[in-house]
Design a binder for these strands. Structure first.
Length: 271
DNA sequence: AACGCGCCCTGTCCGC
DNA sequence: TGCGGACAGGGCGCGT
């Protein structure tokens, strides 16, 4: 569910809400959510840790605990919510962190595709360095995108979603960015011209930044740390709009399936 | 090695 | 109204 803008929104919320807080108690309600340790080890290892900051890397939420990191990936339906201690634990609660002041940091996940992992700072750094480019960083430029794309025959839409090269773009923003860049999503990545790579680079960054400004896209499940919806959904130009007129040229928006995921695009003005 | 597919899981919606 | 099937923001592991 959450792509870069949604994760970034949650990370900024959490940075404000829980930096400086202590994890005084950790309760694992859904053991299959915990990666790399037993639930008991996970809970014991985190108890007493102090949150020094909250960061995002790719679609991961990373709690800086000093010597170690708590890394949370929300999968499709994961939420991280800060709630009062009086709030009843909802169905689908996965992990309950009690903070030093009594508030609860709740990991909630209907489908349980998400994962939580407690790992050392060094191990996390090594993992982080093995991930692809952060699309909003200065180190990611149009030439980097062009050079990477030139090495793959995969359809550009599936290619842009592959987290090994560029992180953070998922199924919604892949369709949106390709529409902005006027590129047909079925084009093999290695057929993009330098001008198209430049247009796609700009489109990815603009799309993600605007979505952050509107606190992400809520279609169904996504919520920020306060449980509120993002408001970017109404600004989507093609995603979920099959049959509606293209906002640029008026032709009907098409829906196709690529790699098992829905793609939305305008076959008239995306070439 | 790169690529495509199935699978993890629950809820919702649509057609019959 | 009920039921089966398709589909949903992600990511991993498998076989080719």
């Amino acid at each position: 569910m959450p792509e870069l803008p949604e994760v970034e929104t949650i990370v900024r919320d959490l940075g404000r809400l829980v930096t400086g807080a202590t994890l005084s108690d950790v309760e694992v309600l859904r053991p299959d959510l915990i990666e790399g340790a037993t639930p008991a080890e996970f809970a014991r290892g985190l108890a007493g840790a102090r949150i020094q900051g909250v960061e995002r890397r790719a679609k991961n939420i990373v709690f800086d605990l000093g010597e170690s990191r708590l890394v949370v990936n929300l999968g499709m339906t994961g939420r991280l919510l800060v709630v009062p201690s009086t709030e009843p634990t909802p169905p689908h609660a996965g992990v309950r962190f009690t903070l030093g002041d009594g508030r609860i940091l709740l990991y909630h996940d209907v489908r349980r595709f998400g994962r939580l992992e407690h790992t050392s700072a060094e191990a996390w750094l090594a993992r982080s360095e093995s991930l692809g480019f952060e699309p909003l960083d200065h180190g990611f430029d149009a030439e980097a995108l062009r050079a990477l794309a030139a090495r793959s025959r995969v359809a550009i839409k599936s290619w842009i979603m592959d987290q090994k090269r560029i992180v953070g773009v998922g199924n919604i923003y892949a369709s949106e960015a390709l529409h902005r860049a006027r590129i047909d999503p079925t084009r093999p990545a290695n057929t993009l011209t330098a001008a198209e790579a430049k247009a796609l680079h700009a489109a990815v960054r603009e799309t993600l930044q605007e979505a952050i400004d509107f606190r992400g896209t809520t279609l169904l499940d996504y919520r920020d740390a306060a449980g509120e919806r993002g408001s970017f959904a109404e600004r989507l130009r093609v995603y979920g709009r099959a049959g509606e007129p293209c906002p640029r040229c008026g032709a009907a928006i098409a829906s196709i399936v690529q790699g098992g995921r829905s793609t939305f695009y305008c076959s008239a003005c995306q070439r």
